[in-house]
Design a protein around this nucleic acid. Structure first.
Length: 189
DNA sequence: CACATGATCGCCT
DNA sequence: GGCGATCATGTGG
């Protein structure tokens, strides 16, 4: 397992979003590591992206982690009850990030357990306490490079209808062969 | 299967 | 004061 590097995260945000499909997200909780295979992501392209929290150069306490160097986490609370986790990309001052929308857990886990950004965070216990964390310096959060290149599907992003023309940009990426991708034939239970 | 709705609260204007 | 980078549940066809 090769850990993803700082220079990787500093690269083109769309390229990072694509490359993270199939990558492993690891989280240490009370000494034990928990892993998930990422199967769905979305790219958020900074100041000029009407769907991004950093649109128009917004720079508030919440969004501040998006302005950090590539390789940090940006976690926020939506709808008062769900958390969404992002991996920050590019360089300091460039507020771009990749939203992790879904993952696969261990085979014995329910298929939909990590299907959706809120569920992904809930399953891995990711809360706002993790925002701003460095994922390259060996903290409790780490990402590992994928070992195989999956078949990748592309679509507009989910839940950003307010974002004018940016709502149609093809910035959502997913593993075409995964059942855990969100917004699919419901895999309840 | 396709909507429709309620929950719930921090953030931003 | 309004509204989300969501989800679970409920209705109707």
């Amino acid at each position: 397992m090769t850990e993803l590097s700082r220079s990787f995260y500093r690269g083109n945000t769309v390229a990072v979003a694509r490359s993270l499909i199939g990558a492993s997200f690891a989280r240490r909780y009370r000494g034990a590591w928990y892993l998930a295979r990422i199967v769905e992501t979305e790219a958020y392209l900074g100041s000029n992206d009407a769907a991004a929290h950093s649109r128009g150069g917004r720079r508030t306490a919440r969004v501040e982690p998006m302005y950090a160097d590539g390789g940090h986490l940006y976690v926020f609370l939506v709808y008062g009850m769900h958390h969404c986790a992002n991996v920050v990309t590019r360089r300091p001052g460039m507020p771009e990030a990749v939203l992790i929308r879904a993952g696969e857990g261990p085979p014995e886990a329910p298929p939909a357990l990590l299907s959706g950004p809120g569920r992904f965070c809930a399953a891995l216990g990711i809360t706002a306490a993790a925002t701003g964390m460095d994922i390259v310096d060996g903290s409790d959060y780490r990402l590992y490079r994928r070992d195989r290149r999956p078949r990748i599907g592309v679509s507009p992003r989910i839940g950003v209808d307010y974002a004018a023309e940016a709502k149609d940009w093809p910035l959502r990426f997913y593993d075409r062969d995964s059942r855990a991708v969100s917004g699919r034939p419901r895999l309840r239970r």
